[in-house]
Structures are given as structure tokens and as C-alpha cells.
Design a protein around this nucleic acid. Structure first.
Length: 742
DNA sequence: GAGCACTGC
């Protein structure tokens, strides 16, 4: 309990009384008392995130349970909790706490708990009615993060069925959904027409201007990089004091833009100081996620007197980071987005126009401290013709395997008619079911298997979890745990931009492969993990070998977490165990096959491999692989992932023997779409399953030989999406080369 | 012969 007396709080309370939300305090408290669901909307600066939980706490709405507030990002959960604990004069972790992955700062006393949406989803898996909570607040719902979307559906479903709501709970759960002013009517309708509370924000006006530089046809990066540079310099030379924030798409564009800005800013008639890229008048700072954190720090410091700061950033500056003093925005109108293509079973990272709501979000970053201006480098026509109203929510553009398994584990059988705020396309759901069936997480009826229940507890993609559990059941989890951890973190191999250093890095990486005696990319990961862990000076070791120390450190934490989950499961008496006789290398690779046989490819001609997942894509081994240039000696391989750029590349590759996957391959085509789509909707009877199995046996007889099966699996990909994506990429590349030549 | 935006468990 806090030692402070009540009058100590007076000053702070007065400050929070100035927030726009304060005059609605009583009404909000009452509204939560009167309704199961409530939508609260208010722009940044309204105080809803910090104040509402305190109001509910003061109103005694926590009763016997906690007030949980979810955030899509870890930093937000932590910083808001720190702030609120100060306002409530308690030490962090007592009445006010937070929980994010690897960091649980709560105690028995915690009643106001900030957490990431992923953490609450984990809690629901362990306790579906959230018996510890009296109120759940989903914050930033407009961002439409995958986890928040799932939570929305689950909370709606649990509470709208009185049967489920009462089970295990004495009092019904209260749900508050907080969102920026966009789409709140939709949310209210979704939640059964619940009231919407609007709180005025406390931001300053931002005026936006279009330009005619970028029209509907200009998607070439060199065009918009050049244009943002030009506009940023115009702002610098003609606008009043205030910092500039430029939105671009990625690291390389940002670096190009910074170089150009630096060069051109020098020629402006200022006295300048070349040292440390500081030009008198303009301080140019790149900002992107994979940047070293110490470099990021200076971005938040105010510039020296008389100098204007210009931050050139990715979308990271749109929501994740707030930079004070920004008065001008230069918006490129593009973003790099990962889209899942279920027809070809691939994720494709592409540059696409942002949505109108995203453009408004970007512009809003200029109005935090004073009135601002936003300069859009695209035309009004581009705005109208190319930019969708809203960004397609994550749930409609990502692979759904984990989501579907989670829902199934929570007893949601009909995963098509689950109340999604925006329903994913049916083929996405079908594809997820197929993958879950293939890695034994669900059976043919769509019911979660014992294995599936173990799998859902791991923060890993199902195939990898399957391989890990296979290894554990054969007593060799020590081989797979580090690999799973290494595959869950950002790329650990550093490849510098300078050609000289690049050569050196490549050499070091090759050496690591040889030392590891590793015959594949998975053992390479294992070896790097172990070598670094055993080193006396791990960070120096990483530097010397061009390995990302930050990434490796997080791999260590992930490995520990995975090991803990596994240990808990192994302590259960029913943990599956099998026997294996054979050498370690074979054991390791066979475990991988259990999870990755869906990612199997067979060499066809030269260096080209053909995938066996039914799409029959022609793929190449990525040059970063230890197996690159050894293709001729390979026949069958499995791979962790696939990358679409100038070619379709497979990355993290491992040679296997056909024998090891022979019995698994039929699984790739034994269930059909018709079957899965009925599984997705309704409970399937025993007779139906029996019918399918008979049909299949007949099918297999007519197919006959293994060669026939391959032919079927190698079915040429008739969908145009990948070739389209490739064509676009190649066109861009060609245009760039022409640009260089001229 | 190499093109990784951003989150999260």
C-alpha cells in the first residue's frame, strides 16, 4: 500500500482534472455500471488511456476482480502503467502493474493491470471466462491488431451467451472498447448497439496540402524518394521554425533520402558544420526499427538552438514512437506491407499506397504540441483513386493458423461464423485448417487433438511447434529448442552495406558453417546459438562474426521461455514419448520433417526446385544459405520460409531423404476443400468421415505409383499472383537501372 | 549471387 497521505496527491489530481475526459468522469462511471459493452472514443490527448481505468477503480467497479487494459504494443503497456502508478501514488507492480512477454510486473495486490493484447489472449486460453477480471478495456481498437480483433470476437461471444457468461463467474464481465474516432459506429453495432462515448481530444489543427508530383502510376521508389527530399528542403527553407518528420517505406529508401538531403542541405546558403552529419540549420536523422537503439535515442532529443530537426522514418513513427516538436509532415503516401497470399501459400512484402485513415494518422503527428502542416507528395487524384478508406485489417491479410488453433482450443468449432469484426476470406480459413490438419493439431473432424492442445501453448508457428514436440518426444529437444528460438527472432546474420565489409561478413559466416560441420541451415543456427552462449565475451564474439547481438540475446530469452513451457508439459503424465534408433543428424532432420514436410521441394532441373504443396512453385535456394551452390548434390529439401523478390527463394534449407517424408506426403492432398469447408462450419459425423476415408482409398488406388502423386503435387501454379508480383518487382528493377543509366 | 515494413506471445 502507498505510504503517502491523501493531500500529497492534490497537485497531481488537479493536473488530471484539466484533461478533457475529466468532466465526463461521473457519466463514464455510470455508463460502465449500466452496460455490458461500451465504446469510448477520443483522440490522442483526451486522457482516456490513463484516466478511465482510474475512474473505474475509484467507482469501485473492480469489485473482486481486476481492471485489465490491453495495448497492441509493449512499450505502451509499460509506460502507461508507470504513469498511472505515479498518478495513483503507488509503486509499480502493486495496485497498478503491467504484464508483457518476459516481464510480469504485477502482484497479488494489482487491480489495474496494463498488458499487451497477446498476453490477455494467453490468459483466456488458461481461463476462458477471465474469472480474475471484472472489467476488460481494449485500447487502440482502431489499429485492428490481430490479437485485439480476436479478443473483440471472443468477448462478444462469451458475454452475449448468458450461459457461458455465468459459468465460473459471479458477476458478468464488463467490456470497454476504446478507439480513435474512426469506425466507432461499426464497433457499436458489432457489440449489439452499445452506447458510444465521445471525448474531445486535445490536439492542434493540421492543414494538409496535396501536390501533383505523384500520380496513380508512380510507384517507383526513386521517384518518391526524390520528391520527399525536395519537399522537405522546401519546408526547411520556407517555413517557420519546427521539426520535420518524413514518412518513407524502408531502410534503403531512408538512407538514400538522408544522403540526398545531406548533400543538398549543404548547398543551401548556410554556415555549416560537416561533423557528425550536422548541417547548420538542418539536422538529418534516419529512423527505422532495426536501427541500433543508441542511435534511436538522439532522435528524441531536442535539436540545438537554431537548428531544425528532420527525421526520416518508416511507419514506426506513425504509432510506436512519438517525437516531440514535430510541426511538419512530409508524407510519401506509401508503406511496405506484408500480405499473405493464400492461393500460393506465400507471404509477399510489397510497397503499397497507404489508406486514407493512415494518411490522417501520419498528418496527426504534426499536431501534438502546436498547429502543424502536412505536405503530401501525391495528388488529389491519387488520394481518390489509389488510397483505400481504411487499411485492410491484419486478420484479413495474414496466415490464420495460430488464430484458428486458438479459437478451436477455446471451443469455437464453427470458425467461419465466429463473430469477426471483419471476416477473413473463407479460403484463408480453409488454408489454416488444412495446415493444422497436416501438422496433427486437429483431426479430420476439425477437433483439436492432444498434440494440438500442447501446440497452442507455444508462441511459434504450428509447423515449427510440431517439429519441436516431435524432438521432445524423442528426447532430443536440446537440438530443436535453440533452432525454434533463432527462427523466432529477427535475422541474426549481419550483412553490411559496404562491399569490403560485406565480403568479410560472408567469409565469417561461411567459416561458422564449416566450423559447425553443419550440413544445413538449421544446424548452422544451432551452432551459432551454442557457440555464442558458450563464449566468455558473447557480444564481442557476435561483433567479430557479424552476428546481431541484440537478436541473439532475445533468442536466448525465447529459448528459455520455450523450454519452460515444454518442461511443464513433460511433467504431465500423458506427454507423448517415442523411440528412435539412428544417428543424431538423422534424428534432427527427421524431427524437422514432421513439422516441415509441407515445405518440401524436390530438385527438378539445374538449380531449380519444385515445391510439393500443391502449388508447384519453382523456387531457388537463397544465396545466404549454406547450401547455395551445392544444388547439384541435392534432391529433396525442406525449408523454413519462402521469399518473393526477383525470384522465389527458399531460406533456411535442409536436405532430407525421400524416405523420411514418403509416408507424410499423402497428407498433403488427402483432405479436400469441400471436406474442410464443411469441417469449418459444422460438427462432422462419424459416417461422413468414414465416407471421406473410403473415397480417398479409391482415389489412391487409381493414382497408383508415387510418381503419380508427385505429378499431382507438382501441379503447375495457375494463379497469377506470384508471377504478377515478380513482374512488378522486375519492372521496378529495370526502371531503376534505366534511371541509373540516364 | 543476395531487396526485412511494423507488431505480438
Amino acid at each position: 500500500m502507498s505510504k503517502r497521505t491523501k493531500w500529497d496527491t492534490k497537485g497531481d489530481l488537479d493536473e488530471s482534472k484539466n484533461l478533457p475526459i475529466y468532466q465526463h468522469k461521473a457519466t463514464l462511471q455510470q455508463a460502465v455500471k449500466d452496460n455490458s459493452f461500451l465504446v469510448v472514443t477520443g483522440e490522442t490527448g483526451s486522457g482516456k488511456t490513463t484516466q478511465l481505468p482510474q475512474y473505474l477503480h475509484q467507482a469501485g467497479l473492480w469489485g473482486n476482480g481486476k481492471i485489465g487494459i490491453t495495448q497492441p504494443r509493449r512499450v505502451a503497456a509499460i509506460t502507461v502503467a508507470q504513469r498511472v502508478s505515479q498518478e495513483m501514488h503507488c509503486s509499480l507492480g502493486r495496485e497498478v502493474g503491467y504484464q508483457v512477454r518476459f516481464d510480469d510486473c504485477t502482484t497479488q495486490d494489482t487491480v489495474v493491470k496494463y498488458m499487451t493484447d497477446g498476453c490477455l489472449l494467453r490468459e483466456i486460453l488458461a481461463d476462458p471466462v477471465l474469472s480474475q477480471y471484472s472489467v476488460v478495456i481494449l485500447d487502440e481498437a482502431h489499429e485492428r491488431s490481430l490479437n485485439t480483433d480476436i479478443l473483440l470476437g471472443l468477448l462478444k461471444q462469451t458475454l452475449s451467451s448468458p450461459d457461458k457468461a455465468s459459468k465460473g463467474r459471479s458477476v458478468p464481465l464488463k467490456v470497454v472498447v476504446m478507439s480513435a474516432t474512426l469506425e466507432t459506429d461499426k464497433l457499436s453495432v458489432f457489440l449489439g448497439g452499445c452506447p458510444v462515448f465521445t471525448i474531445p481530444g486535445r490536439t492542434f489543427p493540421v492543414t494538409s496540402k496535396f501536390s501533383c508530383a505523384i500520380g496513380p502510376k508512380d510507384t517507383e521508389s526513386s521517384v518518391y524518394v526524390k520528391e520527399v527530399v525536395k519537399v522537405a528542403l522546401d519546408v526547411h527553407t520556407s517555413e517557420m521554425a519546427g521539426d520535420i518528420l518524413v514518412f518513407l517505406t524502408g531502410q534503403s529508401e531512408i538512407e538514400k533520402a538522408c544522403d540526398m538531403l545531406y548533400e543538398k542541405a549543404e548547398s543551401i546558403d548556410y554556415r555549416y558544420d560537416v561533423q557528425d552529419r550536422k548541417v547548420e540549420g538542418l539536422l538529418i536523422l534516419p529512423l527505422y526499427g532495426s536501427m541500433p537503439t543508441d542511435q534511436q535515442k538522439q532522435i528524441f532529443q531536442p535539436p540545438p538552438p537554431g537548428i531544425r530537426k528532420c527525421v526520416v522514418a518508416t511507419n514506426i513513427a506513425a504509432t510506436s514512437l512519438t517525437i516531440n516538436g514535430i510541426k511538419y509532415i512530409v508524407d510519401s503516401g506509401f508503406v511496405k506491407q506484408l500480405n499473405h497470399n493464400s492461393r500460393v501459400g506465400m507471404d509477399i512484402l510489397e510497397v503499397v499506397p497507404i489508406s486514407k485513415s493512415e494518411a490522417l494518422q501520419r498528418a496527426g503527428r504534426a499536431g501534438r504540441t502546436s498547429a502543424g502542416k502536412c505536405f503530401r507528395i501525391y495528388s488529389q487524384e491519387f488520394w481518390e483513386k489509389c488510397m483505400p478508406k481504411y487499411t485492410v485489417p491484419e486478420i484479413q491479410r495474414t496466415s490464420l493458423t495460430t488464430v484458428i488453433l486458438t479459437l478451436k482450443c477455446l471451443g469455437v468449432h464453427d470458425v467461419i461464423r465466429f463473430p469477426y469484426l471483419d471476416r477473413p476470406e473463407e479460403r484463408f480459413i480453409i488454408e489454416a485448417l488444412k495446415q493444422l490438419y497436416q501438422c496433427d493439431a486437429i483431426d479430420r473432424r476439425g477437433k483439436v487433438t492432444r498434440l494440438g492442445e500442447l501446440m497452442v501453448q507455444f508462441p511459434l508457428p504450428p509447423g515449427l511447434t510440431r517439429a519441436l514436440l516431435q524432438a521432445a518426444s524423442l528426447g532430443c529437444e536440446d537440438l530443436l529448442l535453440p533452432v525454434a528460438a533463432m527462427l523466432s527472432v529477427e535475422n541474426i546474420f549481419i550483412r553490411p552495406g559496404h562491399p569490403e565489409k560485406q565480403k568479410e561478413a560472408d567469409k565469417k559466416h561461411r567459416q561458422l558453417g564449416v566450423q559447425a560441420g553443419s550440413c544445413n541451415d538449421f544446424t548452422m543456427l544451432l551452432s551459432v546459438f551454442e557457440k555464442c552462449k558458450a563464449s566468455d565475451a558473447p557480444s564481442a564474439w557476435c561483433k567479430d562474426n557479424y552476428i546481431h547481438w541484440r537478436a541473439l540475446k532475445s533468442a536466448f530469452s525465447v529459448e528459455t521461455q520455450l523450454r519452460e513451457i515444454l518442461l511443464r508439459q513433460q511433467n504431465r503424465r500423458d506427454f507423448p514419448m517415442e523411440k528412435f534408433d539412428g544417428n543424431k543428424s538423422e534424428l534432427f532432420r527427421r524431427c524437422l520433417c514432421t513439422g516441415y514436410f509441407t515445405n518440401v521441394a524436390r530438385r527438378s532441373v539445374g538449380k531449380v526446385f519444385c515445391t510439393m504443396d500443391g502449388h508447384g512453385s519453382m523456387v531457388h535456394i537463397h544465396p545466404s544459405s549454406t547450401l547455395f551452390d551445392q544444388e547439384a548434390q541435392l534432391d529433396w529439401v525442406i525449408f523454413h520460409d519462402l521469399l518473393v523478390t526477383s525470384r522465389i527463394y527458399i531460406r533456411t534449407v535442409c536436405p532430407i531423404r525421400y524416405d523420411w517424408v514418403k509416408d507424410l506426403l499423402p497428407k498433403l492432398h488427402e483432405v479436400d476443400v469441400y471436406e474442410l469447408s464443411s469441417v469449418a462450419r459444422e460438427e462432422v459425423t462419424d459416417e461422413e468421415v468414414a465416407k471421406w476415408v473410403t473415397k480417398e482409398a479409391a482415389k489412391r488406388q487409381t493414382e497408383g505409383s508415387a510418381e503419380d502423386v508427385f505429378k499431382k503435387l507438382e501441379k503447375r501454379n495457375d494463379e497469377s499472383s506470384v508471377s504478377d508480383a515478380r513482374a512488378r518487382y522486375l519492372q521496378r528493377k529495370q526502371e531503376r537501372q534505366q534511371g541509373k543509366a540516364s
